Simulated assay, not measured.
Amino acid sequence: MIHKGTKILQTDRLTLRPFKKEDYKEVYENYGFDKEVHKYISWIPYDSLEKSREFVNFNVLQYSENPKHYSWAIVYEDRIVGSIAIFNVEDNDSGELGYSLGSKWWKKGIITEAVNAVLNYAFMDVGFHRIYASCHEDNIGSKRVMQKAGMSYEGKLRDGQKNLDGSYSNLDLYSILENEFRKK
């Protein structure tokens, strides 16, 4: 793999770009504070301007220090509506895909379009071998995104997520290999 970090990616409707320090307000307003977005996740939401600022500043710092850092703001109609990233980048040429989108923009194909752009970059430009992703077992929308992207169901991670309330939830695990992506 040749790590290239987060580069601007363009699709028909989207611009996926590195975060800028001033983006924190849009992150907060458009998806950070959105209760629907946080329904199936375990991490603490960006439910305050300060948490949103910390998230954006962390990414901005990582862009300059870590070529293995892959994190994009999803820009649709000149607004940041979500984010997408590859994290847990490992020495075996694999990484974990994660994404978040404000509920106002659900069911428009935005995440599917963003996932395909990121997978294309990861496999064709960077040289990843495997990309995997997981979602709460009840998150039908996220499962559909992974399936549309050509990812295969690998199994259930029992109690794979500790929720914000301290309970546990099962996760469904999906993945795609570079050679499978090329055949799509």
Rank of each mutant, 00 (worst) to 15 (best):
D23Q: 10
Y24N: 03
K25S: 12
E26K: 11
Y28K: 07
Y28L: 05
E29Y: 15
N30F: 11
G32I: 03
K35V: 14
H38R: 10
Y40W: 09
Y40M: 09
I41Q: 04
I41A: 06
I41K: 06
S42N: 13
W43V: 08
I44R: 04
S48E: 04
S48V: 04
S48W: 05
L49W: 07
L49S: 02
R53N: 13
R53W: 14
E54H: 12
F55T: 06
F55V: 06
N57F: 08
F58W: 13
N59D: 09
V60Y: 00
V60L: 00
L61R: 13
Q62I: 00
Q62A: 08
Y63E: 06
S64D: 11
E65V: 12
N66K: 09
K68G: 00
H69T: 10
Y70T: 00
Y70S: 01
W72I: 01
W72V: 00
W72G: 01
A73F: 03
V75A: 11
V75N: 07
Y76M: 10
E77A: 09
D78S: 13
I80V: 14
G82H: 06
S83G: 15
I84A: 06
I84K: 03
A85W: 00
A85M: 03
N88S: 07
V89H: 00
E90K: 12
N92D: 15
N92C: 14
S94E: 09
G95D: 00
G95Y: 01
G98D: 02
G98T: 02
L101R: 01
L101D: 01
L101W: 01
L101E: 02
G102Q: 02
S103I: 12
S103P: 08
S103Q: 09
K104A: 12
W105N: 14
W106E: 05
K107S: 15
K107A: 13
K107Q: 12
K108M: 13
G109W: 14
G109Y: 15
G109D: 13
I111K: 08
T112W: 12
